[in-house]
Amino acid sequence: MTMELTTIWFALIAILWAGYFLLEGFDFGVGILLPVLGRDDRERRLLINTIGPVWDGNEVWLLVAGGATFAAFPEWYATLFSGFYLPLLIILVALILRGVAFEYRGKIDDGRWRRRWDLCIIGGSLVPAVLWGVAFGNIVRGVPLNAEHEYVGGFLDLLNPYALLGGLTTLTLFTLHGAVFLALKTDGEVRHRAGRLAATLGVPAIVVAGGFLLWTALAHHDVGGWVLSGLAALALAGAVVAARLRREGWAFLATGTTVVLATFALFVTLFPNVMPSTIDPAFSLTVDNASSTPYTLRVMTWVALAFTPIVLGYQGWTYWVFRKRLTVEHIPPAVVVPARETA
């Protein structure tokens, strides 16, 4: 029974991370593309408003994923946050700056003020988009863990070629995902610009993401990983075709599918480990030696069954309410906005 619960919670954590990358991925892409697709202040405000009602809700998936890891696999959580302390701290600071920038960029009618906060939005999107890939690349590849499951490497050990390719993969995928989202959520010139950019970004995304997934599959020889990686590659190719045909809805579905399948491929490849050791496989953290007690896992399972449908229903309702396309005409000329608005 304990083994079944640990496997279930490993799968649930994989789903939480896939959901986070699916939803926050296009938020990151919008922020990264802010200076590319937003040619003046009204267009940049338009881009921000496409994610204004949902970006903070999307970040809840990260909080839940972290909390679930802490409760279900405390050894994994402790080793991860001690060994990856600096990159995770950088991600946290970047996310905080981005959130503050959304709230404050329109508070003062001054071009320099807005440009500084725009830089925070761009950096607060670009940095996590890269570092999440680097972090998961290292988790799948393995890190130097000793017999006490303590990380004994340094920061530079995390900057290996495989992990850096993982960072480039998440950067390209999230940027493409964001471009497709903007083509889906806007109309007029911004929509056409975003669609053209998405069609252009598709080719490098296929090359980079395909190379990373192929490297992963060849290194671990996992059948499930091969299957999921292949399906992710097909979905990405479909996204490129749909983007070139200007079928934004299908393109967004395909990029979202790519992100989810690629995340699942990494977790399937990782299982039953949660953090392999490059020093000795016997020192690796697994779903068994890193898990909480059976009682804790049972309580968590009942809580998840009770509250997950409520959260999913509320978030789905939010997306439905704010489903319509936006245009520059929806953005008033006034620059200073009241408190609690994000434009």
Results as ranks from 00 to 15, higher is better:
278 T>M: 07
293 T>D: 13
282 A>R: 12
321 V>H: 00
279 I>T: 09
307 F>K: 13
337 V>Y: 11
330 H>R: 00
325 R>S: 04
264 F>N: 05
322 F>H: 07
301 T>V: 05
298 R>I: 06
307 F>R: 14
328 V>L: 06
263 T>P: 05
295 Y>K: 12
314 Y>F: 14
333 P>S: 07
272 P>L: 03
322 F>W: 08
297 L>R: 10
329 E>R: 14
323 R>L: 05
281 P>N: 12
301 T>N: 15
324 K>S: 08
306 A>G: 15
291 S>H: 06
296 T>N: 02
309 P>I: 00
330 H>P: 03
325 R>A: 03
316 G>E: 03
299 V>N: 09
313 G>Q: 11
338 P>I: 09
319 Y>C: 05
259 V>W: 05
313 G>R: 02
310 I>C: 13
329 E>Q: 15
253 L>R: 14
275 M>W: 00
322 F>D: 01
317 W>S: 00
336 V>M: 10
324 K>P: 00
286 T>H: 04
258 T>C: 10
327 T>D: 04
333 P>D: 04
258 T>D: 07
289 N>Q: 06
294 P>N: 13
282 A>H: 11
288 D>H: 01
289 N>G: 06
333 P>T: 07
276 P>I: 03
304 A>S: 15
319 Y>I: 08
268 V>N: 13
291 S>R: 06
319 Y>L: 12
262 A>K: 05
308 T>R: 07
274 V>M: 12
330 H>S: 07
322 F>A: 02
326 L>W: 00
316 G>M: 11
263 T>M: 06
286 T>Q: 02
271 F>I: 02
307 F>I: 15
277 S>N: 13
329 E>D: 15
318 T>W: 07
333 P>E: 01
257 T>Y: 12
277 S>V: 11
279 I>Y: 08
327 T>R: 08
313 G>T: 04
254 A>E: 08
330 H>A: 06
330 H>G: 07
278 T>K: 06
273 N>C: 13
279 I>H: 07
306 A>S: 15
274 V>S: 02
271 F>C: 02
261 L>W: 10
269 T>P: 05
316 G>V: 07
253 L>D: 15
306 A>L: 15
282 A>Q: 13
269 T>K: 04
286 T>Y: 01
304 A>M: 13
265 A>Y: 11
325 R>I: 02
302 W>M: 15
277 S>C: 11
256 G>E: 06
286 T>C: 01
267 F>W: 10
308 T>S: 09
287 V>F: 01
279 I>V: 13
325 R>Y: 00
276 P>M: 03
286 T>K: 01
326 L>H: 00
262 A>F: 11
302 W>Y: 15
315 Q>P: 04
297 L>H: 11
293 T>C: 09
296 T>S: 05
257 T>A: 14
285 L>F: 03
332 P>E: 03
315 Q>D: 05
278 T>H: 08
318 T>A: 08
271 F>A: 12
288 D>K: 02
332 P>F: 00
259 V>I: 12
271 F>S: 10
258 T>A: 12
323 R>H: 02
287 V>Y: 01
261 L>H: 06
